[in-house]
Each structure stands twice: as C-alpha cells, then as structure tokens.
Nucleic acid binder design. Structure first.
Length: 868
RNA sequence: GGGUGUAUAGCUCAGUUGGUUAGAGCGCUACGUUCACAUCGUAGAGGUCACAAGUUCGAGACUUGUUACACCCACCA
C-alpha cells in the first residue's frame, strides 16, 4: 500500500496527520527492519540502553535517545543494515519500590500464593501496606511494568525512533533470565563468582545488600559525642569522640596513631567501655589520625567501612549488634564475645536498647551516658558525609551476611587495558572510567535479598539436621534454564525434599539488576538469532552517570565471558539541566515530560533540539530551540511546496531524470555549494558528530531559501528555462535526504508526494547522497553564486536603509570586481537583475582589484503604493 | 582532599590545526512584505571571549596560576 494516495502536500502543514501517516507507513512497510542476510561489515550494531520503566520518561531521555536515533538513521542511509534493538529494564528494586507505592502492597515471602488477589491502584488508600506472597508480588510487578512499557513504547514511536520493534526485550523476561543465569553459571564454572559470609553494606529499609556502585555519600547533620573511657587499673580517663555512640556495646578496641605522643603511655593497657564495662585493648594503629577528633578512637563492629577493614585484619571476634532490619539485636553480656566486668549492669542497659533502631538507640545511650556522667560535654553538632544506598532514605549499616560476589579486584589492570581499546566520545569520558576502576576496593556483590529479579540458579543441600551446605551449592544444568529455585527442583530431587533434612533449599535471593543489564549485548545477540550480530558491537550510547555501573559492568562481563571488548565505541550523551543548571531528575521535581512538547512543537522539532547538542555536553533545557526547529520544519514544507508548484507549471512536469537539464552557470555554481554541504555533513557523521552535520545542512538550507530560491525564482517560472527547475528539484531531493535523519516525518511526507517521485519506497530506505553524484552538475567553484549573493545583500541593505520596499527598482548600481569575476558574473547577470529588481542597463560592471558594490540609485518614483 | 569538565552577546550555544573587523538562533530596536512561508523578510544595537601572567610577529584557542559552577570519587572519630 502506498504512503498517501492523494499525492498532495496541501496548503497548510498538518503535523499530527503527517506524523500518524508516517508512523503507520513505517510499521506497515517494516522500514526499520534488521536484515540478517547482510554481512557483519555491512551491519551497524547498537547496544541500546534499556530505559528503566519504573522511572518517569522525561525530556532528558528523549534527548539522548534521539541523538542515537539520528546516528542510526544516518548509518541506515549510508548503506548498512542497522541492528537497533530496544529493551525495557524492568527488573529490580526501582520497580519493586514503584509497585509497593502504586498498589500499596509489600512482599512477605512466607505467605502462600493467593490466586484471587488482584492488585489495585487507589491513591486515597492510606492504610498500611497489604502483605502479599512472593508470587503475588511478582505478578503485580509484571502487571505494572507491562502497562508502563506500553506508555514508553508510544512516546518512542511518537518521537520517530527507528528501533526494530521485532527485537524488543525485557530484562525480566524468561529469555533475559536465561541469558543472565547462563552468565552466572559460566562465571561460577570459571571460578569468578563466590559466595562468602562477610560484612556487607546493607540497606535496612529494603533489607538488602548493595554494591559499591549503588552507594552515594550524603551530607547529614550529626553530633560529636565526647565519651570518657576509664583506663583499667587507674583513675585516668581518655576522651573518645564518636558520632555513633550506639556502637559502644560493639566496641572491640581503642586505637591511636603509633606516633601520637599523647597516647603512647596507654598502648598495651585496656580501656573500660562505659555502661557495658567491657575491657578493650588500646592499640597503636595507622588507622587513627592524630588531628581528627581527639586523636583516639574506638573500633566497633561495625560503625563504618574503616571498622570493617580494621576488624578483618585484627582477628578479634565479631560483635554484631545491628540486625538486618537496622534494629539492635538481642544479645547478652557475659556470653560469647560480649564480655563485661559487670554483666548485670551491661545487660541492665542493653535490655533497654534491644529492638530500637540505631537512631533511637543512640538517643537512649546518650541519656545513659549523661546520667552516669560519662559525657565530657554535651554533644557537639557537625555535618558529615554518610553512606546511603542511592535509592534509600536511611544510612547504610554494615551487616555480616552471606552474599554472592563476582571477583573484580583482581582484574583492575585488565579492565583499564580493555577501556583503552574502546573509543570514548567525548574522549575525556575514558578518564572517568579509569578513575573508577582504579578506585575499586570491593568485589561486586551481586545478590539482593529481594524478589523481582533474576533468581540465582542455585540450590543448597540440607544435612541431616536441616542445615544448608553453602560450600557446595547445586548449580542448575544449562538445559534447565531459566529456573526459579524457589519453584523448580534440582536434578535428583523432588519437591517433597524441599526444606527437609537431607533434602535441599533454593537460593531465595535475586541478582543485582546491573548483573543483567551488563548483558545487554548478549541479550540482544540472543534476540537477534543471527551470527552476524556479534561482539564487539559498533556503538554503546549511554549517559555519563552510569559509566561506573553500566559501562563498567558490561566491559567486565564481556572480559570474563569472551575476552573481548563489548563495543568499539562508547557515545556518551550529556544531561538535560533545568534552568538553574541542575540535573533533571524525578527526585528534584524538575522533570519536564516529553509528550506535551511533542504535541506542541511536533516530533521533528524535538528531534532538532536534541540533535543540536553535541555528545557529552550537558545542556540547559531551552524550549525556544524547539520553536526554532518548528520554524525549520515549516520552512522545509513551504519551500518544497513552492518548488512543487514551479515544477507542475514547467516543461519538466512528469520528468524524473531531471539532472541533465542543470546547465545554467548560476545553477552549477549553486550545486557546487550543495556538494560541499554533502561532503562536510558526511565527514561529520563519520565521527558521529551529528550536531555539526546538522549545523552545516541547516545553514545551507536557509541560504537556499533566502538567496538561491530568490535568485532563480523568476527564471524558474519562465517558459524556456529548464535548468533552474531541474536545479530546484535536485536541491529539494538532496535536502530531503540530508535532513532525513534529523526530521524523518516532514521529509518523508514531502518525499512521498513529490510530483517527480517514481518509486514506492520510504525515504529512510534510500541512500545518503554521495559527493560523486554531483559530477556533471557542478561548476568548479561557487564564485558566481557567492558574488550574486553578496550583490543581492548590498542592494537589500540599500533598500532597507532607505526604508523602502525590496520591490523598488534599482536605477543604477556600480559593481567593481576583478576581471575574472566580471566574466563569471556576466554568466548570471539576468538572475542578479531579477532578484534585485535592477532596471535594464542599470548594472554597470567595472574592472577593479576587489569586489565592491556602490552608487546604488533607487527609482523612488516606482515605489509601490502602500495600502492604507 | 583527588579526578573530569565548563566559563564567549540579555538567554541557549558554535568557534576546526594559533591568523583580517569573534559568529548563529532567540530576545530587543527599526523598517518592509498582495505574487511558497507573519511559523515571513531586511537591517541595526548588543562582547574587556571569567581573571592574571607567560609563549608568539600574532592568543577566544597554547602554557602556568587564580576564581566560579557542575559532575564523579575519596574522607566521613
């Protein structure tokens, strides 16, 4: 079916109609289909970022995704088949959080499945969250993500992104889970993944371990507490400054710097922890700094990351007092590691802390300290940086638990080496990557104690007492994948063995969402089902905030799985900033949503706005650029309509092989400029510099409308001249092609209804113009056109200065120019006289060393009557 | 404290390897426009290229330092 049976541009541009017509035509004709019969050399492969569907789609996404689409469209026109998948990142904590809020539910894995439960959204529902089973919760997640994905898909289609929608994936789909679990098994077999019990950064709200990359520092208000510790066997006190006095019960040592003279005398002695009467060693350690706090500090398990590091090398027993929910555990002094010189007193105080949050416990302990005169002075306020999970509201705790880790610390050098094999655009983004790799100090914790994610394909044997054996897990066979170990059963067992002595249990954790996102190339390859789609891909577009996560983890996985870089180039887009130059984000409440902008300005105008910005450059949101885009789109429409009209009234009506008619020197001179434009735009695109390409094209286009079109207008309308008409046809065709990656809608519309169109084919499946194709229709240079433009400008200036209409005739004008230029000018004199309304014989050419236009005399008697 | 980037007209941004009088769009001012387009056109005003020193015949661009802003990392008693 053809694009538009009317074959008519119409008088006014109707953008919504044009956009709808294009969208259905492109879908109908499968215009953006990936052709797997083409060779790898003829294929351009993009590792599209799957957007997080739980977030809101804002104009910043449209910005960066459109930049990629412009590149994809150029590559397609330049002769490659483009593998351009789209996926949704829908698994993980962000989705769970959204689902919890949206349906007012929370997951309790111990509950049985309720087949009748239907999640419902009710904004007014302020009741406590309803607890639902794991399966019900996952179903609710699937329900909401699928509707969110529909909304995203529509916006992306509305903005004209040329994904092949046949290769769409979801990170939570069974296929992705299979790829992700295969990755896990491969790394397990290679010994790159390990499960260990270790203190881990722990979010108490979501009750899950988190990885280094998900942690951010926040400045918070806190207090210094100066606490008196007695020296055992003496009347002396030392003053320990701490922001976390609630960790007094977990104190394992007191440390000061070995060189600190103030405390030398105490090394080897013991200090008595107030309230709990625990005797702890005072030891020298480089870990302490002389000029921080009082220079002497307590080590607890665990107040911060430094405590963890110190404890690991100390060999001292663990005193875990904070539980997984962030509340103080029930421990008894006088038992195990919790030694005390006075267990009764210690327990008297500690009993009052059990079950309190760390914050509540802190306040309580301060009361006790104050009452027992153990505070040197009242707490002193300070602001300090504290680690938070990036999506959490409470500080992280360090809690010892069993987690899966992927070994990364032993690969830092290789990671840097691989990073250098990849081209980064802009180049400086590679520094960010390297700095991150250099600063890496933990392996990658990939297990999350959550529900909506990729399960570990792992079970554990239970011994005769029902205790799991974590040291030799049962890993699923590849043929079983995807598996959910909470539902599926390992080979050699039956469901009846689940949870029974000598039976098995499934690993109930899910993987970090990045463990799956880092496999987008592998997931896309799986979806492609074609050997042509292979590593390394051509480009990975992404934003700079996730270099340390997405880019880093993807490089890590490609390295471990196949010893290759995942892509040849990373194209890093900038952010859209609000007018205060702050990053646009939902949490800041400064988000601009795209759909109303698309409705207001049209998709092509939004795309124009996005394509104006260079890669990696953060840009302030400026709606006027979209208005500028709309003017351009309108101009493309009107200039085309005008040329169509000329063609319809010319001898070339119905002629498709128009090129041979371009013979007039002025037209050849203009086509030279067009060929230069194509050359420059092509060069810019070859380094993915779409913005420079657009700038070049747009500049020439306005030049065309303002000058060339005016210069040839009269000649094009004349009966005997075909050159001008043919040149206009050639010009329109060229502009449609070069604007196509930027403004796919208006260009397709114009292309399809050209009176000289021949084939039923989308513009977007045609070829990008080649400089060679201008052979035979260009002059050696553009001197004639440039000089004519200059003369035209001078005459316009004179008329403006005289406050008269541009249509006022010129009675006399002297043009001095070098001999060579004069002879060239004579070839286009008619056009110059036409555009300037210069009377016959009024233009006088004189030889000179340089061009000058002077003595412009206007025939004021011929001023057109002004209408009242 | 470390790293990276940015600083050019009222605003948003270009400015290639150093080279005449530093550009565009918007905004502002003036004028014009029946003949594709008022979603138009022509022109004008508007700049100590953040600051300082240096290299050079010549610096918006190169070097060094300073300041401001942004992002990333670290510290976080």
């Amino acid at each position: 079916m053809s694009y538009n049976t009317n074959k008519n541009l119409g008088n006014r541009m109707d953008l919504p109609e044009i956009e709808n017509r294009c969208k259905s035509y492109w879908a109908r004709e499968n215009v953006y289909h990936y052709d797997d019969t083409r060779s790898r050399e003829e294929t351009f492969i993009i590792d599209t970022p799957p957007p997080t569907v739980s977030g809101s789609l804002h104009i910043g996404h449209i910005f960066s995704y459109t930049q990629t689409d412009v590149i994809a469209r150029y590559q397609r026109m330049s002769g490659k088949t483009v593998f351009y998948p789209i996926g949704w990142d829908d698994n993980g904590l962000p989705t769970e959080r959204r689902v919890q809020n949206y349906y007012n539910i929370t997951c309790n894995p111990s509950l049985p499945y309720d087949a009748n439960f239907k999640p419902e959204h009710n904004e007014k529902d302020k009741s406590p969250r309803k607890e639902v089973s794991r399966k019900n919760f996952i179903e609710a997640c699937e329900m909401l993500t699928s509707s969110d994905e529909g909304i995203f898909e529509n916006v992306f289609k509305n903005i004209g992104h040329s994904y092949d929608w046949n290769i769409k994936y979801m990170t939570i789909s069974p296929k992705s889970i299979r790829v992700s679990q295969e990755s896990f098994i491969d790394l397990y077999e290679k010994g790159e993944v390990k499960s260990i019990e270790s203190p881990t950064m722990w979010d108490v709200t979501f009750q899950s371990a988190v990885a280094q990359a998900e942690v951010e520092d926040r400045e918070v208000q806190g207090h210094f507490h100066d606490i008196k510790f007695k020296i055992e066997g003496s009347d002396e006190n030392i003053i320990i400054a701490t922001t976390r006095p609630e960790f007094l019960p977990a104190c394992i040592a007191i440390v000061a710097h070995p060189d600190d003279e103030r405390y030398q005398k105490y090394f080897g002695k013991k200090a008595i922890v107030p309230l709990f009467e625990t005797a702890v060693d005072i030891v020298p350690s480089e870990h302490a700094e002389k000029d921080k706090g009082t220079g002497i500090m307590m080590v607890c398990t665990f107040g911060d990351a430094a405590d963890v590091a110190w404890w690991k090398q100390s060999g001292l027993p663990l005193k875990q007092i904070v539980g997984l929910n962030g509340c103080l555990l029930d421990v008894t002094f006088g038992e195990g590691a919790f030694t005390s010189n006075n267990p009764d007193q210690a327990n008297h105080y500690y009993r009052q802390l059990v079950g309190l949050s760390t914050k509540q416990a802190r306040e309580k302990i301060v009361e006790f300290l104050r009452a027992t005169n153990a505070l040197q002075c009242e707490p002193r306020p300070l602001t300090h940086a504290v680690k938070f999970y990036e999506k959490g509201n409470l500080p992280l705790e360090f809690v010892s638990s069993r987690q899966w880790f992927i070994k990364l610390q032993d690969k830092k050098e290789q990671m840097i080496e691989y990073g250098r094999k990849i081209k980064w655009k802009p180049q400086h983004m590679q520094h960010r990557y390297e700095e991150w790799v250099k600063g890496l100090n933990q392996d990658w914790c990939i297990s999350r104690q959550r529900f909506f994610g990729v399960p570990f394909p792992v079970w554990y044997k239970l011994d005769a007492n029902g205790n799991p054996d974590y040291n030799s897990p049962i890993v699923a066979d590849r043929s079983q994948l995807p598996v959910d170990p909470m539902i599926d059963v390992p080979n050699g067992y039956t469901e009846a063995n689940r949870g029974k002595p000598n039976g098995f249990i499934g690993d109930c954790d899910v993987m970090d969402t990045w463990a799956t996102s880092a496999l987008t190339p592998q997931i896309a390859m799986d979806a492609a089902k074609s050997a042509k789609v292979s590593l390394p891909f051509d480009v990975r577009p992404q934003a700079h905030d996730i270099i340390r996560t997405w880019a880093f983890y993807t490089i890590a996985k490609a390295l471990m799985h196949s010893h290759t870089i995942p892509w040849k180039e990373v194209l890093v887009s900038g952010f859209i900033l609000d007018p205060d130059r702050k990053k646009m984000s939902k949490s800041k409440g400064n988000v601009v949503t795209p759909q109303h902008l698309i409705d207001t300005y049209g998709a092509d105008s939004i795309r124009y706005w996005a394509a104006r910005a260079r890669l990696g450059v953060d840009t302030a949101f400026e709606e006027q650029i979209m208005a500028q885009g709309k003017k351009l789109v309108n101009k493309i429409f009107n200039a085309s309509k005008f040329v169509f009209n000329i063609v319809e009234n010319s001898k070339l009506k119905g002629v498709t092989a128009y090129k041979a008619h371009i013979t007039a020197p002025m037209d050849l001179s203009w086509q030279y400029k067009m060929s230069q434009m194509v050359k420059q735009a092509t060069e810019a695109f070859s380094t993915y510099d779409y913005a420079t390409a657009l700038e070049t094209i747009e500049k020439r286009f306005w030049d065309f409308c303002d000058n060339y079109l005016e210069i040839v207008k009269k000649r094009a309308y004349s009966e005997e001249d075909s050159s001008a008409v043919a040149s206009l046809m050639q010009t329109i065709d060229t502009f449609l092609s070069v604007f196509a990656p930027f403004c796919p809608f208006i260009t397709e519309e114009v292309y399809q209804v050209r009176p000289w169109s021949t084939e039923e084919k989308s513009l977007h499946n045609t070829s990008w113009p080649k400089v060679d194709s201008f052979a035979g229709i260009i002059a050696q240079d553009s001197v004639l056109y440039d000089t004519a433009s200059e003369i035209t400008a001078e005459i316009r200036k004179a008329k403006t200065a005289a406050n008269v209409s541009q249509r006022v005739p010129v009675a006399k004008v002297d043009i001095s120019a070098p001999e060579g230029v004069i002879s060239i000018l004579r070839q286009g004199l008619v056009d110059i006289e036409n555009v300037g309304s210069i009377q016959p014989n009024a233009l006088v050419l004189r030889p000179s060393t340089e061009l000058s236009i002077s003595n412009i005399l206007l025939d004021l008697s011929a001023i057109p009557q002004k209408t009242a």
